[in-house]
Every structure is written in C-alpha cells, then in structure tokens.
Design a protein around this nucleic acid. Structure first.
Lengths: 221, 221
DNA sequence: ACCTGAACACCGTTCAAGT
DNA sequence: ACCTGAACACCGTTCAAGT
C-alpha cells in the first residue's frame, strides 16, 4: 500500500471515469438501478456529488457507460469446428450468462440498442456467420438473429421480473389459479398437476432447441 | 353537460380510482413513464397531490394498476375451427399489439409478472390449449409457451428501445459498422448490402414462423 | 370520507468559487 | 484541471388539519 510522494494533484486525480463506472456497477449489482443516484455514488467514492460531473456529463451517460462496461465482458465464442447449431447456442448462451451476471442492468442492456450495437459488433457478426452457415438466405439470417436476440432479452427480463423479489417462478401462476373455481382453466391445471417442481422451472436451452429446430427447416435449400 | 344539483360531496367524490388510472395511463402513453409523478398527475386531475393517496396507496400501486388496466384490453382470440398454429399466432399477435399500443408501459407489462399472470389467465389458458392441441407433451407445452412469451416481450422491448427515440431500426448497426475498417465484419456488411430497406425492418411474424416450424417437429408423437 | 397544505428526506443539475 | 458547496427545481410520502 505504498503512497506516491508529494501532493496527489494533476498527475493523479482522485476520480477516474473507469473508477466511477466500476463503483457504480458494483452499486447497481448490489442494490439495483434505483439505488444508483449521483449523490449516493458520491458517498461511495468519498467525494462531493458534483465532482462526478467532471468525468461523466450526466446520469444518462453514467448508465450507458455501465452498459459498455458490461458488454465488454462478453467474449465471442470461437467458431472452431462446431456445427452452426452449436455456434448459435454458444453465442446465445454467452449473452444470456452476461445478462444473468448483471440482472439489475438487463433492462438497459436490452434497451440501449445504440450502445449495445457498438459494444457487441463481434458477437453479432459471429451470430450472423453461424446463421449464414446454416444455409439461410440473407433475409432469414436477419430475422433469425432478431428472434434469438429478442428471446434472450425476454428470457433475461423474465428472470429478473416480479415486483418484489422472485417468488418460485411458476408459483405466481399457480397461486392465481387457486383463486378461481376448480373447473376454470382446466388445461393449465392439468399441466401444472402433471409436472414436477424441476420440470416447472424456466429452461433457457429448451427455447433455443425449439428455435434451432425451426431454423433447420429453412436452411440449406 | 348537466350537473348534479346540491353540493357534490359524499355520494360523488371528485376522485376515483378508475379516473386516476385513466388519467395516469393517458399521461404515460403521451409522455412516458418518467413523466408520471404523483405531483404531475395531481395537476392533470386538478387536485392536491396528496388527494391521490386516498385512492391509491402509493406510486408502485399506481403502476400495477396501469398494468391491470392495460391487460384488461387483451381479448382472448376464439379458438373456433383454426389450426393450432393459427391459434398460437392469434394469441401472440393479440399480446404484441397490446404492447404496441402502450409502448411506454412494455417494461412493466413484461416485468410485473404477478399482476400480468392474474390479468392474463384466460389468454394463457388459450395459449396452453393451442400448444396442447399441437400434440406437445406437457413439459414442452410449458417450454413452448415460455419461448413465445419471452419472444413477444423481447420484441416489444426492442420496438421501444433506443436511448432517445428510435432511429431507423437497423440504421444503428449500420452506423456502427461504418466506423470500422471496410474489411471488418464482412458477414454483416454483405448482409446489409444485399437487403432492401423494407427487408431490414423487424418482422414479428417471421419470428413466429420460425418458432412454429420448430414446434411442429416436437408435436404429434 | 375526502381533500388540503406544510414538512421531510430525497433527487439531478447549474453555477460560482476555491486550490 | 479538478473538486467543493450553495442553490434550484423537482421527487414520494407522512402527518396534522380542515370540511
């Protein structure tokens, strides 16, 4: 824990854009996006609230900065010798796991497309490449990529959802069911009754499996 | 424009939960969710801000109230004589159009699952019924329904996205591309070059088509 | 029962000032 | 160049008060 000699000015500013973003990200990961205020962040940084504005123009920019930081964690899966199906799965999984690691930011990851597009160019290229490798014509490549991205975003959002915390996933629906007459909604009732706890859990890979099966019908001729 | 005689008390309160929700929904539809504050809403209602608290416990409840109001607009498509594919399409479309009508609320529609589950029980039943009609085993019915809901939510979110307004959909990506060397991201480049403006637009039905094709592989035996 | 009004503890951001 | 501090125009919500 050595300290530089001399007064810590000019060459060694107290605050740094990177340092601010790192602290902000930790704050968001721990307490959620609503806990991120310029003033609370300043407390964590041990600094006057207004000092932050010297490194970040405003709160909006702070949030897009966080989106950039998070997307920088996304590494492109290498395409080496895998089937196009496995390549698509790898890309989708990489993004899904990213979202899973920063649940409180999912909304912004999904919503700030300008920043996301810039930060995920390589991943997007990898996805398009895999889909082109499936033999899909150009237009369907685009449509398939959209489907996959929308699915991942929707899945990630559902994982985060619930007004308080998360009740046991499907439990919410079952509770709602129990408020109605026992002969109402027979299909749902029978469905839930016939499945185990584990089978009721949301399954990211299952959705991908359906999508890939659909894509296979349109590729290669 | 007749007015009741006598002083308008007791039997005819100025404020009503329904009236508050309607005004709030109009405010959100027009100016976005950030424009919805208890104080601004009070101005629109011509009332002291605190008057609202007599009918709605807090702002959170106001928002879940809006989700309920919006979901109440969702009408279940009748299953009459259609293929299961058309039934699935009809349900998905109904929800997508609902989201499209209230873009500023999409986040809450997708995220407040407790309220959504209660308000959309009939629609969910219709979806499960259609998927069971496809011959999917119970577990796959659930997974397929999740895929469809996640896709619709993701699609709706993408429609709303963008930090400011919406630039021309795909334009964002193309702009990002142009900041890089002309030999970077060749697959994307060729893709965009080969498609017309119209073909670049997001296509909700196309995603559904892929999903349905995938489901057909797992149904009926 | 229903609405008002002052008050409290928060926000983001501007602007002038310090070193 | 970098940080501080007061100030402004907002928030959601509590609580006492009016009718």
């Amino acid at each position: 824990m050595k300290r530089k000699q001399g007064r810590p000015t000019a060459k060694a500013p107290i605050l740094t854009r990177q340092g601010i973003l790192n602290t902000a990200l930790r704050l968001v990961d721990e307490k959620g996006v609503n806990a991120l205020s310029m003033r609370r962040l300043a407390v964590r940084l041990g600094v006057d609230p207004m000092a932050i504005y010297h490194h970040v123009p405003n709160k909006q920019a702070l949030l897009t900065g966080l989106v950039q930081v998070v997307f920088a964690e996304l590494e492109v899966p290498s395409a080496g010798g895998q089937s196009w199906q496995d390549q698509v799965r790898a890309v989708a999984r990489a993004y899904q796991q990213l979202a899973h690691r920063h649940p409180n930011l999912v909304l912004y990851l999904a919503t700030d497309i300008e920043t996301a597009a810039g930060a995920a160019l390589e991943t997007t290229e990898a996805l398009y490449q895999a889909l082109a490798g499936a033999g899909l014509p150009p237009r369907l490549v685009l449509q398939a990529a959209d489907l996959i991205v929308d699915y991942v975003n929707g899945f990630a959002l559902a994982e985060v959802a619930g007004p308080l915390g998360q009740p046991g996933e499907r439990q919410v629906l079952i509770d709602q069911l129990n408020r109605h007459a026992p002969d109402a909604f027979p299909v749902m009732r029978q469905l839930f009754a016939s499945l185990t706890e584990a089978e009721l859990r949301a399954d990211f890979e299952a959705g991908l499996t359906f999508i890939l099966a659909g894509l296979e019908r349109f590729g290669r001729g």
